[in-house]
């Protein structure tokens, strides 16, 4: 059992007319890569802002390394939070941002930052506000990677980045994570692209947690069961069906079992075909229905 670095209990954030985060509880363990997934407005950013004490919760508790993060230098210096809407001062150049980051994060690796700047082809002397959208995202990515913070959070880090740069980001993330293990939380829409990176998933919808599970376990538990309509229909009776799709007399059901191998084995015994489900499809189906079951 690895150590818990973030613990969130009954965290709630209410605004005048909406509840952005609704009694959310979860734990984040040390040295793992987490995916925080959900649709726009699901409450992902709000949760991360409360973890980093940028926002105040209405109720509930946040503990980071066992302490409250608010005005806690020891804690917040261990967190690097890269968010999509990060604001930069008008007069700052790329270099200024790197210098600031180096003075803030204790584990900052200047050599690595320099190498990344070359990889992402960033102009050091250009003002941040003159960067293109993709370049701006690269600045965040470089800060996040080179900070080597024990908890690094990327919230939609690659708006405007092209596919090549995104691949570069994933590769560097994995490579550096292997050499310098730390806790990484990745929040994104591009689920299939990152699915190979994520070890653990937390899926959020309308401020509530839909799913909190290991990625491999989830993959094992969930299968598409395909076969003749009547056979599939009798198979899925009493099971947890996430999605149904029919093509003529063929029916395909996305089924979530209780244990890893249960669905696959049972389906094979019933003479039905099974196919793996992509993580993206699964999340889409889950958040589309907004089903909160005892998963």
């Amino acid at each position: 059992m690895s150590q818990t670095v973030i613990e969130v209990r009954n965290l709630t954030k209410e605004y005048k007319d909406t509840t952005a985060v609704d009694h959310v509880s979860f734990r984040i363990e040390e040295n793992k890569i987490y995916g925080l997934l959900g649709r726009n407005g699901a409450g992902k950013t709000t949760i991360m802002q409360m973890i980093t004490a940028q926002l105040f919760s209405t109720s509930g508790e946040v503990r980071v390394f066992g302490e409250h993060p608010y005005e806690n230098k020891k804690v917040i210096q261990q967190i690097c939070f890269i968010k999509e809407g990060q604001k930069y001062p008008d007069l700052f150049t790329v270099k200024d941002v790197m210098v600031t980051a180096s003075s803030v994060y204790p584990n900052w690796d200047a050599e690595y930052a320099k190498a990344l700047i070359e990889v992402f082809r960033l102009p050091m002397k250009r003002l941040i506000k003159r960067l293109s959208r993709g370049m701006l995202s690269s600045v965040g990515i470089i800060v996040g990677l080179a900070s080597r913070a024990p908890i690094t959070i990327f919230d939609e880090p690659y708006l405007g980045l092209d596919a090549v740069a995104r691949e570069l980001f994933y590769d560097h993330l994995i490579e550096d994570y292997t050499e310098n293990p730390r806790t990484i939380i990745l929040s994104t829409h591009l689920i299939d692209e990152v699915s190979r990176l994520l070890e653990h998933l937390i899926v959020i919808d309308s401020g509530k947690i839909l799913l909190d599970t290991d990625t491999d376990e989830l993959r094992g538990r969930t299968h598409n069961v395909i076969g003749h309509q009547s056979a599939v229909e009798s198979f899925i009776k009493g099971r947890d069906v996430i999605h149904l799709e029919s093509l003529g007399s063929t029916l395909s059901a996305t089924v979530m079992g209780r244990t890893e191998t249960e669905v696959k084995q049972a389906a094979e015994q019933a003479g039905l075909e099974t196919a793996p489900v992509s993580l993206q499809q699964l999340i889409v189906h889950l958040t589309k229905n907004g089903k909160v079951a005892s998963r």
Partner: peptide
């Protein structure tokens, strides 16, 4: 301008 930038870079309010 600098406050939200500083907050994003793990700096305490005080």
């Amino acid at each position: 301008q600098l406050f939200s930038f500083a907050m994003g870079f793990s700096i305490r309010r005080t």
